[in-house]
């Protein structure tokens, strides 16, 4: 967008929305919307508090473990599915089902099976992230140009060489694309898990703040959460762009 010939940065309109928020808050339009400035000053206060730090730590722990399992299980599964037709036909229907299924409904099962704790939250996170990672890794392997593989074999590449030097790289843009979407889903999964299990992390913090009607605290945590989620997603998009320059050209 251009204004008087000057290019406005892409996300700059958020400043306007922030300003609007501040004005609505100042006008005391609603108890639930404190001025943005007050939210920010609260934000700096709660950064130091024990409750916030442990919520952040627990969330990060559950998130990172969940994503770790999703990647470590998901990518190899997807690659095997892409290379083995029988395995593909057996697993693909399930991957597609869980990709579109409302996974929230499974959280109560996880709670009764794995308890009201970290374990259930981690599994929820993994469940949210893994299916798209599998599907994209599979798609990445399937789209590999046959002539690329034939080229490697014709120059005498061993199967292992062909795998590490051709397959993985040729499928990388899709795999990374899957990881990016998977991670965004994992952020949602970890929060949904915490809300439903609600004795850990931000779930517990939200309970605490809403029980005491601490609106600025509530918004402060939301801003941190949304900001982190957005940063993660943009960072991964940046990484993906760095690899995908060749994706369009093959």
């Amino acid at each position: 967008m251009k204004l008087f010939g000057v290019r406005l940065p892409a996300m700059s309109s958020l400043l306007i929305w922030g300003l609007l928020w501040e004005l609505i808050g100042r006008a005391e339009f609603s108890f639930f919307v404190p001025p943005l400035s007050q939210v920010f000053s609260t934000l700096f206060e709660i950064f130091g508090t024990k409750a916030f730090q442990s919520a952040l730590y627990e969330t990060a722990y559950a998130f990172i473990s969940g994503v770790f399992f999703a990647i470590v299980i998901g990518i190899p599964t997807g690659i095997f599915m892409g290379k083995n037709r029988l395995l593909d036909e057996l697993l693909l229907p399930w991957v597609n089902i869980f990709l579109s299924a409302p996974l929230t409904a499974l959280v109560p099962v996880l709670m009764v099976l794995f308890g009201f704790g970290m374990k259930s939250i981690i599994i929820t996170t993994t469940l949210f992230a893994i299916w798209i990672i599998i599907l994209n890794a599979r798609a990445g392997v399937l789209q590999i140009n046959r002539s690329l593989v034939e080229m490697a074999t014709s120059f005498g590449a061993s199967p292992w060489d062909a795998f590490t030097k051709v397959y993985v790289w040729a499928a990388l843009p899709e795999i990374l694309g899957g990881v990016r979407i998977g991670v965004i889903r994992a952020v949602k999964g970890v929060i949904i898990g915490q809300l439903l299990i609600s004795i850990a992390g931000f779930g517990a913090l939200f309970e605490l703040y809403s029980a005491n009607f601490l609106m600025s605290h509530f918004w402060a945590v939301l801003i941190v959460l949304f900001g982190l989620a957005f940063t993660i997603s943009e960072f991964l998009a940046y990484l993906e762009r760095r690899v995908s320059y060749y994706a369009a050209k093959r």
Partner: peptide, 12 residues
């Protein structure tokens, strides 16, 4: 909104 865990808005 697309990237954010909007479920966190539920208590609000």
């Amino acid at each position: 909104m697309q990237a954010a865990p909007l479920a966190a808005l539920i208590p609000l």
